[in-house]
């Protein structure tokens, strides 16, 4: 009974727009859902560095290279904000990272696609960050304080990612026929994964009802996806590119762009671990942890030694 009352009070707080903070009482399911979402989100930021890092040394100019470096560095920072946010829920950073490296946690499926050409770097910034910003602007209004504050920070930083991506695509699209073809080819390959990335349709999204009741998410996947499509289609047209969907049409009445069928079988296939790069992405992260271990060991040893020195100084 007491539990029931707590739950009712909790829901009241949420409904009145109050943020929930780490030390407040929360239902176990709320804690679980958030732990799952925030850690997946953190892993996604970190794994997202891999497909882009792939092109840093081959960026076509210094301008492009410093921008890409800064973007990838931002993604590392975003991963850290989010790992900090998930730790407030009572799990350790090491635990959640291990879950991911052992294949027990998910991350955004879109990073399981390869970056085959330079135009793919443009497509990621334009499409992937574009969809992410729309999703994260919504999550910034969510009920859990630390997650919502991390989202505010991330959104502020991410608008540069989105613009740098579009600039790359737009520039290629105005270039030689080969360059334009490269931009179109990237759009062709990234379009479906991009419109899938905000999650499955509302009628087949197992967690949505609960996360929306608790305002962890304040808008549904379908709403977010449609907003992304409506914003992105005109941007493609402005660059002279064609959205790879022959059923795409503008509905004058609703004011929305309507797409043909979305390939959800593909989405679930990649979520379940069978995309083009799933295994490689996890292996690369495992290697990074292993190869970086000596840095952590050295930092720990140094701190220990310094700690001893400081003690003798104060004695």
């Amino acid at each position: 009974m007491e539990e029931q009352e707590k739950l009712a009070r909790f829901q009241e707080r949420i409904d009145s727009g109050q943020k929930i903070e780490p030390k407040d009482w929360m239902p176990e399911r709320y804690r679980k859902q958030l732990t799952r979402m925030i850690s997946q989100h953190a892993h996604s930021e970190i794994v997202g560095m891999l497909p882009e890092g792939n092109w840093i040394t081959r960026a076509p100019s210094l301008r492009r290279k410093v921008a890409l470096l800064a973007k990838v560095q931002d993604e590392a920072g975003h991963g850290l904000y989010l790992y900090s946010a998930v730790e407030t829920l009572g799990v350790t950073r090491e635990d959640v990272i291990n879950e991911y490296l052992e294949g027990r946690a998910k991350y955004s499926s879109i990073f399981n696609y390869p970056t085959l050409t330079w135009a793919d770097i443009g497509a990621i910034g334009w499409l992937v960050d574009g969809a992410a910003i729309i999703n994260q602007t919504m999550l910034a209004r969510g009920s859990y304080g630390p997650y919502s504050r991390a989202m505010v920070r991330i959104c502020k930083e991410e608008s540069f990612h989105n613009r740098q991506g579009y600039e790359i695509i737009y520039t290629l699209a105005q270039g030689t026929p080969e360059q334009k073809q490269m931009a179109q080819d990237a759009l062709n390959r990234w379009w479906q994964p991009a419109i899938q990335m905000v999650g499955p349709p509302d009628d087949n999204s197992p967690n949505s009802a609960e996360t929306m009741r608790w305002q962890i998410k304040v808008e549904s996947n379908d709403v977010i996806r449609q907003r992304f499509i409506d914003r992105t289609v005109p941007q493609a047209h402005a660059a002279g590119l064609t959205i790879p969907d022959d059923q795409l049409k503008f509905n004058e009445e609703t004011g929305h762009w309507e797409t043909g069928p979305i390939d959800w079988d593909e989405f679930w296939r990649v979520v379940k671990g069978n995309g083009p790069c799933n295994r490689q992405r996890i292996q690369d992260r495992i290697n990074a942890e292993r190869e970086g271990q000596w840095v952590l060991d050295a930092a720990a040893a140094y701190a220990k030694k310094q700690g001893k020195k400081q003690l003798t100084l104060t004695e």
Partner: peptide
């Protein structure tokens, strides 16, 4: 497990002064 407990050190709270003359404000942690 791949990452040992405590491998990343301990948690520190971070306070940032954005301009001279104003208070430090909590920014997050590392």
């Amino acid at each position: 497990s791949h990452v040992k407990e405590g491998a990343h050190g301990i948690l520190w709270e971070v306070f940032i002064q954005s301009k001279p003359g104003i208070p430090h404000k909590h920014a997050g942690n590392v």
